[in-house]
Simulated assay, not measured.
Amino acid sequence: MQPGELITSDQGARPGSSADIAEAWAVLAEVMDPEVPVVSVVDLGIVREVGWQQGHVHLVVTPTYSGCPATEVIEDDIRQALEQAGFAAPMLERRLDPAWNTDLITEQGRERLRAYGIAPPVGSSNKRSLLGETEAICCPQCSSSNTELLSQFGSTACKALYRCRDCLEPFDYFKCI
């Protein structure tokens, strides 16, 4: 090494374009949630922003809740998918404010949940349930609203366990938060 030579590199930094941003969104649409592998991180609304900073793709990611055990796995999956698509050293920023809520789940995400057998969130995250108001939770198998709550917690903390009184199938309900 000669005096004045760079010891580190720019790790693949380059000018970005709107096509790069669109490609990054397309890659992210294929990164599935590890707990519900039919919905992408885009469907869930946890990827809040995609941009270009300092020569690299930059993402703002908001976990479904601050204690979500899958947060690091999701971030690693995102980073790996972007790197495999040719984005050198993607920059991920975990942002907790504003908090994620179920209103951010896309219509496509809600349909994918339903098709997978998980009832998507009903209504809005406006917390009406704290006032005793509840909405009918429809069975994702037969669409019946004749359902009952079995447990406030289903396969994960963000889901409740229900059963359909018509087809008798149990199912998870993705809670409004």
Results as ranks from 00 to 15, higher is better:
S17R: 04
A81G: 14
A19D: 10
Y65W: 03
E35N: 00
S40F: 12
G55L: 00
S40A: 13
V57W: 00
D77P: 12
E75P: 06
V50C: 07
D77E: 14
E49F: 00
Q53N: 07
I78E: 05
E23R: 13
G67A: 14
E72N: 06
G45F: 13
G55A: 01
D20W: 14
R79A: 11
E30D: 12
E83P: 06
Q53C: 02
T64Q: 12
R79S: 12
D20E: 14
L44I: 12
Y65Q: 04
V27H: 12
T64Y: 09
D76Q: 15
G51F: 04
Q53T: 07
Q54D: 14
A19M: 01
E23S: 13
V38L: 10
R14W: 10
L59S: 01
W25R: 15
G45A: 15
E35C: 03
A81L: 14
A24F: 02
V57C: 02
I21P: 13
V39Y: 06
V31Y: 05
A70H: 11
V41M: 02
P34T: 15
E83G: 08
Y65P: 04
A24M: 02
M32V: 07
D76S: 11
P69R: 00
L59V: 01
S66C: 00
A29H: 09
G16H: 09
P37I: 05
V31E: 03
V36D: 04
S18D: 14
W25I: 11
V39D: 05
I74F: 03
A22K: 08
P34V: 11
G16W: 08
V57T: 04
E35Q: 03
I78N: 09
M32K: 10
A24R: 04
E35V: 00
W52S: 05
E49M: 00
G51D: 07
M32A: 07
W25H: 13
P37T: 08
V61R: 00
V38N: 09
I78H: 10
P34Q: 11
V47L: 12
D77T: 13
I46P: 07
V57S: 02
D77K: 15
L59E: 03
V42S: 05
H56S: 15
P15W: 03
I21T: 15
D33K: 04
D33S: 04
S17E: 03
W52M: 00
V36S: 01
L82Q: 09
S17P: 09
V60C: 00
V60T: 06
R14K: 13
V38E: 08
I46T: 10
D76C: 09
I46S: 03
S40D: 13
S66A: 08
E30M: 07
L59T: 02
A70Q: 08
G55C: 03
P34A: 13
T71Y: 00
A29V: 05
A13K: 11
T71Q: 05
W52F: 04
V50Y: 04
I46W: 04
E30R: 10
C68S: 14
V36I: 14
Q54S: 10
P37N: 06
V27W: 09
L59I: 04
S17V: 02
E75C: 14
E35P: 01
Q80R: 10
A22T: 08
A29W: 05
A26D: 15
L44V: 07
H58G: 06
T71I: 03
S40Q: 14
I46Q: 01
